[in-house]
Every structure is written in C-alpha cells, then in structure tokens.
Design a protein around this nucleic acid. Structure first.
Lengths: 105, 105
DNA sequence: TAGTTACGTAAGTCGTGACTTACCGTGCTC
DNA sequence: GAGCACGGTAAGTCACGACTTACGTAACTA
C-alpha cells in the first residue's frame, strides 16, 4: 500500500465528509455512502486513499467492512501543523515587537 | 476575492512549500520562485489561492510585493482540526473502555 | 447449492487545476 | 522620458483525480 500524505487526503471535501461520519465510531461502506451524494464505489475509492494516508483502518466483519478513524494519520497532521503553527507564531511575535520598536503600531 | 477553504489550499505540496518559505518572514514573489522548481507566474497563482484562503497577506513595497503568513487562515485550520481531534479522541477512549469491559484487550 | 448482500476493482469519461509562455501594467532609476 | 525590474493576468496545454457503470468475489442464508 503506497503511502500518501494525510494532509493531501484531507484536501478533498468528500473525504472530509467521510471522516466526519467516522468520528462517532466505525461505519460500513454502504452505510456511509447512503448519506453521501456519490456512489458506493466512489466512497470505496476514497476510503482506500484515506487508508493509504493512515487516516482510517479497516476491519472485516462478515460480509461487511467496518472503517474507523486511525490515530496515526491524525497525529501526523497534528504534528506537522503544530510545528508550523509554533514557528509562524514566533515570527508574528518577533514582527510585532519589531514594529513596536519602530513605533509602527 | 472568492473565499477558499484553507485546508484545501494546504492540500497542494507546492503551496505548502511556499508557506514553508514564508514562515521565517515576508518574502517577494520572485524571491520565493527562485527557490522552487516552477515558474514565477506559477508561484504568483499559488499565492493568489493562498490569499483567497486567508493564509497569506500581501503588502506592496515599491515594485515588489511582500507576502507573509496570515494568522486568520492558520487559525481556521487549527480550529477545525482541534475540534475534529477532540471528537476523535473521545471516541477512541470510549472504544478502548468498551473493549476493556469486553476483555478484548 | 443457489441466491443475496456487501464490497472491491477495472475501465472509461470528464472536469479541473497546476503548469507553461506571452503579454501588460506599475513603479523605481539614470 | 527611456529602460528596467517586478509581478499580475490571459490563454492554452496536459495530466490527474473524482466520478460513473459493469463486473468479479467473499461470506452469510434458506
């Protein structure tokens, strides 16, 4: 299973809609598809992408497959963004102080 | 300027590369483009998208335009993701407790 | 075993978006 | 004012990805 960056998987609105429906607990493919304006195969393909990004895991149960959120992908996004946020914040503060010194606000 | 969801703007690798180069402070378009494997107009177009997502702001300085990170878009992504993370975490805990009760691990 | 349910996958279509080059406007500089 | 840097925009190309339908497969059920 080829890796895929979680943050890129999150770029698609339909995939975010799918993830939203998994946040309350595991769901089957057809169950999810019934709430979305796309076909079941489309949902299935999205779930594969989400799986490649470690954003969901799959568990077979009889003839159904239950998908649920995977903390790994979520943590990866959180780490990336927290780091980015921290660095950006540092720059903002520095810029603000610099402007104060120059009396620009 | 039509709005655009920040998290969708973050989906593109080149745009993330651009943001990475803005994290240390304001930069001009040509300056950014010189470090990236794409043309200057391409960078310009990406910056427009980022601006529509409130991820960057623009300040004119002579003939140049200095772009810098915009806290608004960043905060929006952070809010969205923090909320999502919190809900997911709650579900994980609940599932873990449920499994303990059932002795499944 | 035959039928049904639930999914995944293959194959093909179609729109979109990430590029390119060419061009135009704007603001310094000599 | 002429020339030059800087960058936004237009127009066109091209690949990719988000869909669809059709089909194949695995697992319950009667």
């Amino acid at each position: 299973m080829t890796y895929r960056a979680p943050i890129e998987a999150l770029g698609d609105p339909m995939r975010r809609a799918i993830l939203e429906r998994l946040v309350a607990g595991p769901r089957s493919v057809g169950d999810i598809a019934s709430e979305l304006p796309v076909s079941r195969p489309a949902v299935s393909q999205h779930l594969r992408v989400l799986k490649e990004a470690n954003l969901v895991t799959e568990r077979r149960e009889g003839t159904r497959r239950l998908y649920r959120l995977d903390p790994n992908g979520l943590a990866e996004v959180r780490t990336y963004f927290d780091d980015f946020w921290a660095r950006a914040l540092a720059e903002f503060k520095q810029a603000a102080e610099h402007n104060e010194t120059k009396g620009e606000a």
